[in-house]
């Protein structure tokens, strides 16, 4: 049983008149309540894969099976309805929201669009969602630009879980956060995963973070899969050149003793 199965996915762009493959014959699977990390240097195709998987971009070749059905075959209203099950959290929580919106509207949209709650019931659901992600329900009336970065990312997570998805794509979702906030957000994500059995496609360039939360890892280089496997095993002894380079480049704290 897999939630998302991607096979032989390819996407080409033209850069300076020459075609180049942003994503080249990539395959992977994610099971329920599993975290699959996509790692790689910038330009390796991680974000493109995320956008292909979400049908924000259309692939040139390949198949995407989501919850056992051909995801690429969907269009229009059927696709929009299916999107309830496949959500995303962006890197920059400020850019991810309409700058004019308030928190309540951000959370109201998915509930309204997918008919999850009636108009009168929605304020209660919004309050519950905010509390689920560790925010005060009173935050609902605040404008998005008034709240802190960490709070915004929690709102983004609340929006993503509003439609009870089976998979959330986390595109560098903790990279822009302060380290102290980052830990809390990762804890929240893991907690949600345990409770709701949500699978994550966790995109990051930071192997330390990946090692902390991911079950399996796919390391990409120039649009291709360089290596994949159990996250801790791969990070402990990478086989590919790019894997070795990523591990070597990750900053280490040379602490003599751990307090």
């Amino acid at each position: 049983m897999t939630v998302l199965a991607v096979s032989n996915l390819s996407k080409r762009y033209r850069r300076g008149g020459k075609p180049f493959a942003a994503v080249d014959d990539v395959s992977f699977e994610i099971g329920p309540a599993e975290t699959l990390a996509l790692a790689g240097p910038s330009g390796s195709g991680k974000s493109t894969i995320a956008r292909l998987a979400l049908r924000l971009l259309e692939p040139d070749a390949g198949r995407i099976q989501f919850e056992g059905a051909d995801f690429l075959a969907l269009s229009g209203a059927a696709l929009r309805a299916r999107r309830a099950r496949l959500q995303m959290v962006f890197q920059d929580p400020l850019a991810a929201f309409n700058p004019r919106s308030i928190v309540a509207r951000v959370l109201d949209d998915p509930l309204r669009i997918h008919g999850i709650a009636s108009r009168s019931e929605r304020p209660r659901r919004i309050a519950a969602l905010l509390e689920r992600v560790g925010l005060d329900a009173g935050l609902a009336a605040r404008a998005i630009h008034e709240i802190s970065g960490g709070q915004r990312q929690r709102v983004a997570i609340a929006r993503a879980i509003a439609t009870r998805p089976s998979l959330i794509v986390l595109d560098e979702a903790v990279s822009a956060l302060d380290v102290s906030v980052r830990g809390q957000i990762l804890e929240l994500l893991l907690d949600l995963q345990r409770q709701e059995r949500i699978a994550y496609l966790f995109i990051s360039h930071d192997l330390g973070v990946i090692r902390a939360v991911a079950h399996r890892i796919v390391i990409l280089d120039a649009g291709r899969v360089a290596e994949s496997g159990d996250a801790r095993t791969v990070i402990a002894s990478p086989q590919s050149a790019i894997g070795k380079a990523l591990v070597a480049a990750t900053p280490r704290l040379n602490r003599i003793k751990t307090p």
Binding site: R83, M88, F90, D92, A95, F97, P99, P110, I113, R159
Partner: peptide, 14 residues
């Protein structure tokens, strides 16, 4: 091309 438009598509907005 902004993220919040992609975000609106992801939540299934018409």
């Amino acid at each position: 091309e902004r993220d919040y438009v992609a975000g609106a598509r992801v939540i299934g907005m018409h």
